[in-house]
């Protein structure tokens, strides 16, 4: 068996190829992405609780602190820097309009969860939106503005129609 603490991996990040990068096997995906310069991925706890480090792996949101960089080998990663579909541009506009962030530290993770909501292409009640984002800490807003922003986004994107 391999007994190396380092390994070489490749992946696609925000539609660009990143090939043959040597990483320590212990490094989690969040640190790996940050080391590559994707600083929009924020580490709030490194124990999977806060949700600030959420990124998309093959189109699904995951906690980047709870996934090793080596596990992402061969996968397609989207960080907040690459979250620019037309739907997500609408989402971002709605977040700005509703001031759905203060310090901005939770925002990239919050957007990843919003991506999941938008992706499911159905209507959500405010309570359901609250349920979906309940794995993302925000210490500034009190959440209401975020719920407003997600609700606004879903209306503008016209989901489930």
């Amino acid at each position: 068996m391999s007994n190396l603490n380092k390994t070489t991996i490749s992946m696609i990040i925000n539609n660009e190829n990143y090939d043959d990068i040597t990483v320590e096997t212990r490094q989690h995906l969040g640190d790996f992405l940050r080391d590559l310069g994707f600083k929009g991925t924020h580490l709030g706890c490194e124990q999977g609780a806060c949700g600030a480090c959420n990124v998309l792996v093959d189109g699904e949101s995951v906690r980047s602190c709870l996934m090793l960089a080596v596990q992402a080998n061969g996968k397609k990663i989207t960080t907040v820097e690459g979250l620019n579909s037309s739907e997500m541009e609408i989402v971002k506009d709605c977040f700005v309009k509703n001031n759905a962030m203060q310090c901005g530290f939770c925002s990239s993770g919050m957007l990843m969860t919003t991506y999941e909501i938008v992706k499911s292409n159905r209507k959500y009640s405010r309570e359901e939106i609250r349920e979906m984002i309940s794995g993302n800490y925000c210490r500034c807003t009190g959440y209401q503005a975020i719920v407003d922003a997600v609700e606004d986004s879903l209306n503008k994107i016209n989901v489930g129609v």
């Binding site: 949700g51 699904e60 995951v62 906690r63 996934m67 969860t113 979906m132």
Partner: peptide
């Protein structure tokens, strides 16, 4: 069980 991002993995 936890939240969407955790349930995905």
């Amino acid at each position: 069980v936890a939240h969407p991002a955790v349930r995905n993995k």
